[in-house]
Design a protein around this nucleic acid. Structure first.
Length: 708
DNA sequence: GTCTCCTTGAA
DNA sequence: TCAAGGAGA
C-alpha cells in the first residue's frame, strides 16, 4: 500500500464495469495509488429501481470486476448507500484520497448527482475529473452546421460517421494497480436479490455470462461469426444471430469504442472483398450502436424524455387506462400469438429480440392504446438489458413522439408480422405450448381456424388460449375516434386559451403522469411457464410498478424525478470551453441559453407553471471547473479534450435555451418546427395548432388547409 | 409496356 | 411522408 494517505485516487465505478478501455481507471492508475469504489444506491433512481434480472446481472458483473481488480493489485470497495455523494466523502475521509475519477453517464438522475458530486467534492479540495467511456462521441460534440443538436436520428448518425476525427482508440487494461490504503474502509456486503429471486434467477446463468472479459469474448465471437449474416437474419424472431451485447453494454462491460473499431475493421475487409452482404450487415449493426448513442444524446438534450413525449402532438390523446388490458399484455394473453409469445419470452428470460420488442410495444400503444410509460416501465422491470435511455427512445419512437418516429395512426397487424418474423411458427410454438399443434397456416391467426382444426390441435379459444382481446379493425376505428377526440380537446383548449383563461392543466396534460397502476399482488399466471416452480410470490419483483423502495409517492412522480424544468431550461448548455463560436451567435434564444449560474436570475419566466423544488435547476453541462480544461488525453490522441474534461452537469443555472423545436411551452416536449412541417406535412393532422401559432411559423393553424 | 393504385417498410 | 414494388387496368 505504497502511498497510503498521500493522496491516492478514488475511481468510482458505475456503469463502466470493466478494466479495459476505462479512462477513469486509467487516469487513476496514472496518477498513483487507486481505491476502486462501487456504490449501490438504488433509491436514488426513484421509480427506476433496477428489476430483478438487471440486479442479478449487476451482482455477477461486480464480482467479476472485483476478481479482475484483485489480480491487478487492488479490490473493489462496495458501499450500500442512499446518497452516493456522502458515501464518496466517507470513503475519501477514510482513505485520504485527494482525487476522484469517474466516467460520464447521461441519464437525468446521474447528471444531477454527478454535478452535485463534483461541486461538493471540489469544495472539499478534492480534484474531480470525469471521462467519456460510454459513447463514441460526447453528445455536445455532435452538432449540425448551425451548432445545434440534431433532431433526427438520420442526421445525427450521418454526422457521427463523418466526424473529422475518429472515436478514441480503446485503452488497454492497466498492467498493475497500486492499491490505496483501504484498511480503514470496510466494504459493505451488497444484497441484490432475495431468496425468492435467487430461485427465479438460477437459470439465468445458463444463458448469460456477465462480466467484462465475458463481454469481450461475446464481442469477438459476434464480430467473427454472426455479424456477417446480421442483415439477413435480423428479421427472424427466433434467430440467435443478434449480438447479445446489450446487457454487457448497459453495464459498460464492453467498450462501445472497441466494438466500433472491431466492426469497422471487418467493414474495410469486406468492402475490399466486395462482400455486399457483409457491408450491409456492418452498417446495420453500427446503426444499432448508433441508436444507443442517440438515446444518450436525446436524454442529454432532453432530460425528461423518459417521462414525457418529445413531441407534444399527443398531448390530448385519450389513453386507455385499463389495467385488464395491461395485465393481459404482460401475461401474454392478448390472443395474438406473436405478441403473446414475445411477452412470455420476456417474462421467462428477460430477453426479447429487437423486432419483437417493436411488435409488442407497438401493439401496446396502438392496439391497446395504453400509455407508453406503463410499457416502458414494464420493460425496465423485466429486461435483462433494461436501459433507461434506450428504452425511452424506443417507446417514443413507437409512439410516434419523436420527430422521426413512426406514424401514430398506422397499426401494424400482428398476424401479418407473425408470418414475416416467424414464418414457420416455431417461435410461437416454443413460447405458447398450447398452440404447439396448430398448423402453420393458422398459427398466427387461430381465431380464423376451422373448428375441426382447433379441436384436433387441442385448442379451445377463450378457454386455453384467448380470443383476440380486440380486433384489429376495431382497434383502428377506436384509434381514429380517439384521434378526433384529441383534436376536439385541442381546439377546445385553444379556444379557452385564446379567451385568456388560464387552463389549469393545459401545460401538463400530456405529461400528466398517468400514474402507474397499483402493483398486483401476483401475476396469476395460468400459462405454461417454463422456468419456475414456486407459484405464489415469485413474480412480485417483476410487478409494475416495482417501486417498493421508491421514495417517491405516486402522485409526486412527475414532480419528483421528472426534473421538470421547462424544456427551455432543460436543454443543456454548451460546455464553456467548447464551441464558443456557436454559443456566441447572435440568436436571441441562444443568448438566453448563455445565461449562467452566476448571472441568471430570471429563468423561470417561461410559463413554468409546475414549479416545484426541482425547477430551479437548469440543465447545464457548461460550468466547469477550471481544472477541467486542463484536459489531458489518456489515450495519447490528444486531439480532443475528452478526458478529464467536460462534465455533463446540472447547475442552478436555468439556461433558457430553446432549440429549433420551438418550444416555449414547457410541457410540450420538442414542439413542432416549421422545418419539421415542411419535411413531414403528413403529420400535420397530429399537430398541436396552438403551439404552431406560437412558434412564429407561417403555417396557418388550419387543419383543413394543412390536411388538404 | 406503362400508368395508377395500393401496400409495406422505414429509426 | 416517401420510396419501392406488386397487381391490375
Amino acid at each position: 500500500m505504497g502511498s497510503s494517505g498521500s493522496g491516492c485516487s478514488i475511481v468510482w465505478f458505475r456503469r463502466d464495469l470493466r478494466v479495459e478501455d476505462n479512462p477513469a481507471l486509467a487516469a487513476g492508475v496514472r496518477s498513483g495509488a487507486v481505491v476502486a469504489v462501487f456504490i449501490w444506491a438504488p433509491e436514488e433512481e426513484g421509480h427506476y429501481f433496477p428489476g430483478r434480472v438487471s440486479r442479478w446481472w449487476l451482482k455477477q458483473s461486480l464480482s467479476h470486476l472485483d476478481t479482475s481488480l484483485k489480480s491487478l493489485g487492488t479490490s473493489l470497495i462496495t458501499k450500500r448507500s442512499t446518497d452516493s455523494v456522502s458515501s464518496l466523502l466517507e470513503v475519501i475521509k477514510l482513505t485520504g484520497a485527494k482525487k476522484l475519477f469517474f466516467n460520464h453517464l447521461y441519464d437525468p438522475i446521474s447528471l444531477v448527482r454527478d454535478h452535485r458530486t463534483k461541486e461538493l467534492l471540489t469544495a472539499e479540495g478534492i480534484e474531480v475529473r470525469s471521462f467519456n467511456a460510454d459513447l463514441l462521441y460526447e453528445p455536445w460534440e455532435v452538432l449540425d452546421q448551425d451548432g445545434r443538436p440534431f433532431s433526427t436520428f438520420a442526421g445525427f448518425w450521418e454526422r457521427c460517421l463523418t466526424m473529422p476525427y475518429d472515436p478514441e482508440a480503446p485503452l488497454l487494461p492497466p498492467k498493475r494497480i497500486v492499491s490505496g490504503d483501504v484498511s480503514r474502509c470496510l466494504p459493505d456486503t451488497l444484497i441484490f436479490e432475495d431468496e425468492l429471486e435467487k430461485g427465479s434467477n438460477a437459470l439465468l446463468a445458463r444463458a448469460w455470462s456477465p462480466g467484462w472479459s465475458n463481454a469481450d469474448k461475446a464481442l469477438t465471437l459476434f464480430v467473427n461469426g454472426p455479424l456477417l449474416e446480421y442483415s439477413k437474419n435480423r428479421r427472424k424472431a427466433d434467430s440467435a444471430t443478434t449480438s447479445f451485447l446489450s446487457p454487457h453494454l448497459h453495464f459498460g462491460e464492453v467498450s462501445v469504442r472497441k466494438a466500433f473499431h472491431l466492426v469497422r475493421i471487418k467493414q474495410v475487409l469486406w468492402a475490399n472483398e466486395g462482400n455486399r452482404a457483409g457491408e450491409e450487415s456492418v452498417n446495420l449493426f453500427l446503426m444499432s450502436i448508433g441508436l444507443r448513442e442517440y438515446s444518450r444524446y436525446i436524454c442529454f438534450n432532453h432530460p425528461y424524455s423518459h417521462e414525457r413525449p418529445l413531441l407534444g402532438h399527443l398531448k390530448y390523446f385519450p389513453w386507455v387506462i385499463d389495467e385488464g388490458y395491461f395485465k393481459a399484455w404482460r401475461q401474454g394473453r392478448t390472443g395474438y400469438p406473436l405478441v403473446d409469445a414475445g411477452m412470455r419470452e420476456l417474462w421467462a428470460t428477460g430477453w426479447l429480440h429487437d423486432r419483437i420488442r417493436v411488435v409488442v410495444s407497438s401493439f401496446f400503444v396502438k392496439v391497446l392504446q395504453l400509455p407508453w410509460r406503463w410499457g416502458m416501465k414494464y420493460f425496465w422491470d423485466t429486461l435483462l438489458d433494461a436501459d433507461l435511455e434506450s428504452d425511452a427512445l424506443g417507446w417514443q419512437y413507437i409512439s410516434g413522439t419523436l420527430p422521426d418516429g413512426r406514424e401514430f395512426d398506422r397499426i401494424d397487424n400482428p398476424q401479418f408480422e407473425g408470418y414475416k418474423f416467424d414464418p414457420n411458427g416455431e417461435y410461437v410454438r416454443r413460447w405458447l405450448p398450447e398452440l404447439a399443434r396448430l398448423p402453420t397456416e393458422w398459427i398466427h391467426h387461430p381465431w380464423n381456424a376451422p373448428e375441426c382444426v382447433l379441436q384436433a390441435s387441442g385448442i379451445e379459444l377463450g378457454s386455453n388460449y384467448p380470443l383476440p382481446i380486440i380486433g384489429i379493425d376495431a382497434a383502428k376505428a377506436r384509434l381514429q375516434e380517439a384521434l378526433s377526440q384529441m383534436w376536439q380537446h385541442e381546439s377546445a383548449s385553444l379556444a379557452t386559451n385564446e379567451n385568456g383563461i388560464e387552463e389549469g392543466l393545459g401545460d401538463s396534460s400530456d405529461s400528466t403522469p398517468i400514474a402507474f397502476p397499483q402493483p398486483d399482488t401476483q401475476m396469476e399466471m395460468d400459462i405454461n411457464e417454463p422456468v419456475r416452480n414456486n407459484p405464489a410470490r415469485r413474480y412480485e419483483d417483476q410487478m409494475v410498478p416495482s417501486m417498493t423502495s421508491s421514495f417517491i409517492r405516486a402522485e409526486d412522480e412527475e414532480t419528483s424525478i421528472d426534473l421538470r424544468i421547462s424544456d427551455n431550461d432543460s436543454r443543456a448548455e454548451v460546455p464553456s470551453n467548447r464551441n464558443l463560436a456557436e454559443e456566441a451567435r447572435a440568436d436571441p434564444q441562444q443568448d438566453m441559453q448563455m445565461d449562467r449560474v452566476d448571472n441568471n436570475s430570471n429563468n423561470h419566466n417561461n410559463n413554468n407553471n409546475n414549479n416545484n423544488g426541482f425547477t430551479e435547476y437548469g440543465f447545464s453541462r457548461g460550468r466547469r471547473n477550471s481544472d477541467d480544461s486542463t484536459a489531458e488525453s489518456s489515450s495519447g490522441g490528444g486531439r480532443r479534450e475528452r478526458d478529464g474534461g467536460v462534465v455533463p452537469v446540472w447547475s442552478p443555472s436555468s439556461s433558457t435555451y430553446s432549440d429549433q423545436f420551438a418550444s416555449e411551452d414547457n410541457n410540450n416536449g420538442i414542439g413542432m418546427s416549421p422545418s419539421y412541417l415542411q419535411r413531414h406535412p403528413q403529420s400535420h393532422q397530429l399537430l398541436n395548432w396552438h403551439r404552431l401559432s406560437q412558434t412564429g411559423s407561417r403555417v396557418t393553424p388550419s387543419p383543413t388547409r394543412l390536411s388538404g
